[in-house]
Structures are given as structure tokens and as C-alpha cells.
Amino acid sequence: MAVRQRVVIGEEATYVVLDRQWRVVEPVEVYLEYLRQEKYSPNTVRLYAYGLAQWWSMLEDRGLDWRRVGVDDLASFVRRLRNRGSDPTVVALRPEKAAASSTVDVSLTSVLSFYRHHAIVTGVPAARQFYEHVKGGSMEAHRRYASFLGHLGGGQDRRVIGRRRDPKAPPPFLTPKQVAVIKDDAGRFESGAGWRGDLRLRLFWTLLEETGLRLAEALLLRHRDWQPGTGTTAFLEVQPLEDRRRRLRVKNQRYRRIYLSDELDDLYGEYLFLLVEQGLDVQDDLPVFVNLYRGEFGRPLRPETVYDWIDGFKKRHPLLPGAWTPHWFRHSHATALLLAGVPEHVVQRRLGHSDIHTLLTTYAHVTEDAAMRAAADWKSLVARWGAAA
């Protein structure tokens, strides 16, 4: 069967797909190289390589030519994915749990994108069977986002094999009390004794709490990106950075500015004093979060170190949600802002979502509750209409 293989060239890691003879699958490599040249996220390359390895395995099992496949083959592929790679025509005595719809959709998307690319680059016509063209005059065409490498003419391409997603649950979040426990476990200020524990991690969790930064965005911050408040409001700049060695990348590769509270800025100042006391030469290009107690001193902090601390924390505090991750701070930040009545477009800009629909879809339960609370005061709304008249 075909497999996805991780390859390290110098300090950069990427993925290729190998067939059952352990040869690089050339058509897949052409497409993956396109993704690399277009600066797609390494995680996207990894996921698409996995989906295409599954597709190539099915082609090998059935003796199919990748250039001469049809909608029936694509439908069989989806059934195979849902059956976790086994032949859907064979009834298993002990069937495994079906794969999640989101997992299936990622692999399906990788195959569809692969064929759309080859439809233009090498002229393979299979992609024409996988899409139907919606005329530009229809309302549905205007509502849909145009996928890359689409038709140059008017209208829109729509999948023949549609998506089927699991019901989307509200994103998990941490309560203020739970956040306080996490921060105090990392580091706590004691009167007369100063800071106890790891002030660096105290700053890290406070930063995620107050800004909603993603883990990669926080770990890629440099001291030059943090603009202290000197008579004005402090802010930090999220730069479109990438560190392939640590497998970190700012999502969407877009710049944004986030304003900070005085308390968070003061905590950063105390952290700077700690770095100087530790003998670290604080340069503008030095990452804000570095190794202080394990690993090579002064080197950039790795995600693995953060997750190792989380594992230890969960053992010390088994009553807190066992599944929490740094991304829960982002959900908590967005939920708090929306519940406080901050306009959706402001929350979108602060979180760095490229599309406001992402925010409205992810936090629909919050925005809907806010709308329902406003509608509950219908008497005041009606009174305003009378006053306006």
C-alpha cells in the first residue's frame, strides 16, 4: 500500500507519498511541490499527503490508472475512508468505529484539489467529472467561495460528491476560576518573597488569556514585536513568521496588532528583569519565550516543553478538564469578548480570522444567545419605534 513519508532536507521537513514499491509517486509529488512553492502550511502538506496516500492505495488495490477514474471511484474512496481503509464490500465481523466526517472530508479535499491542479498542469480531464458548474447568475453561486484553480469564466464549481460533516459542538473553554488555577500553578507572587515558580509560564498563560493568540503565534513572538506602553496603550504585533525547525507557523501569514492591558504589560516588564538576572542578553530578535530551566539555555521554547508542563499540571489538578489545550484559551477569550458585547468584526480582527463567517460559525452559540437576550427586551425596542415615529 502507498504510504506518506516524512523527509528532512537540511533543517526543513516535508512529506512525500511512496507507492508499494517504495518509489515516489511522481504525479502526487508534482502537486505537493506546488503546495510548497505556494507557501501552504506544512501541516496542510502533511494532511494532503496522507489523503493522497490513501487514494493511491485504493488505486493500487484495484489496479486503476489515476488518469482514468470517475465519480464511482471517488464514491468508493469515500466509503473506504469511512470504513477506515478496509474494503467496503466486505462485511467485518468486528467492525471498527466509522471515521469522523471531518477526517474523511480532508482526505477527499486533497484528492479533489490534486485533480483540479492536474486538469490545468497536465490536462488530465478527471476533475471535470468531479465538479458541476453553477451559473454565475444563480444566488447560490454568489454565496459560495470560489475554490482555487476554478474556472476563469463566470459561475462557480461545486462538488459532485458533497460534504457530510458531524454536528459541530460548541468550542470548549476555560472558566475564569480554571484559568486562575493554571496561572497560579505556573507562577505566583508572594508578598515579601516575590515570584515563586515559573514567571515565564505565568506570562505565557496570561498572554493567551488576554489576547487569544494561537500557540504558534505566542511562541514566535520576538521582543521587537512587543511595544511597551510608554504613555500610550501597549500592543504587540503578530508578524507572518515561520519556524520550520520547531514546526511553528503564523496561520494565514497575516500581520495584525493586538492592544494589551497595563497589567499584562507590567508582567512582561518583570519577566524582562528576570531574563537579565539570569544573564541573558535580551536582543530585539530574541524570541520572548526561551528555555530557562531545561534544554539549551536561551534557545527558543518548543511546543513540546509547553505540553510537557500541561501533562504535569493535569496530574496535579485532576478535577480540571482533562482534555484542555492551549487553544482553549483562544476559545475562552473569544467567548468572553462576545458575551461582553464587543462587536463581531472587532473580535474577528483581534483573533486574526480571515473571514468573519469563521467567527460567526464557530461561536454561533454565543452570538445567538446575545441576540436572544437583546430580543427579550422587546418592550424597550417597541418603545424606541414609537419615539422615532
Rank of each mutant, 00 (worst) to 15 (best):
R144I: 13
I161R: 02
R164F: 04
S107K: 14
A127D: 05
T109W: 00
V124Q: 11
F289S: 13
R67S: 11
W324V: 03
V3C: 09
G63E: 07
R373D: 15
G150Y: 07
A234D: 13
F114Y: 04
L203F: 00
K177C: 07
L59N: 11
L219R: 04
L320N: 10
E209W: 02
L301H: 01
R256A: 02
A218T: 02
R254T: 11
L208W: 04
S110W: 00
F235V: 02
A193T: 13
H345I: 12
S76W: 13
A126C: 11
K379V: 07
L64R: 08
T109K: 01
L337Q: 14
G269H: 10
M372G: 10
L149R: 15
V290P: 09
T305S: 13
E210C: 00
A53Y: 07
D377E: 15
L47V: 10
T122A: 07
A141D: 12
A75K: 15
S110H: 00
R144L: 15
M58C: 07
E277I: 04
T206N: 06
H353Y: 15
L337I: 07
G187W: 06
L275D: 15
E209H: 06
D285Y: 05
M139Y: 11
K314R: 12
T232C: 07
W55T: 09
G229K: 04
W66I: 10
P27L: 06
I258R: 08
V346L: 10
P167M: 14
A126I: 02
G229L: 05
A13K: 03
I182V: 12
Q253E: 15
G70I: 14
A323Y: 14
E190C: 02
R224T: 04
A49S: 12
L203I: 01
R247H: 15
L52V: 02
W55H: 06
A388W: 10
L219G: 05
R256E: 05
P95Q: 10
L81M: 13
Y145T: 15
V71A: 04
A100S: 09
R20F: 06
W205E: 06
E29P: 03
T230F: 10
F329R: 01
R249H: 12
V181Q: 13
L112R: 14
R196F: 01
R249I: 12
F289P: 13
I258P: 12
P303I: 01
G194I: 09
F313T: 04
L213S: 05
A99V: 14
G341S: 04
G150P: 09
L208Q: 08
L236I: 05
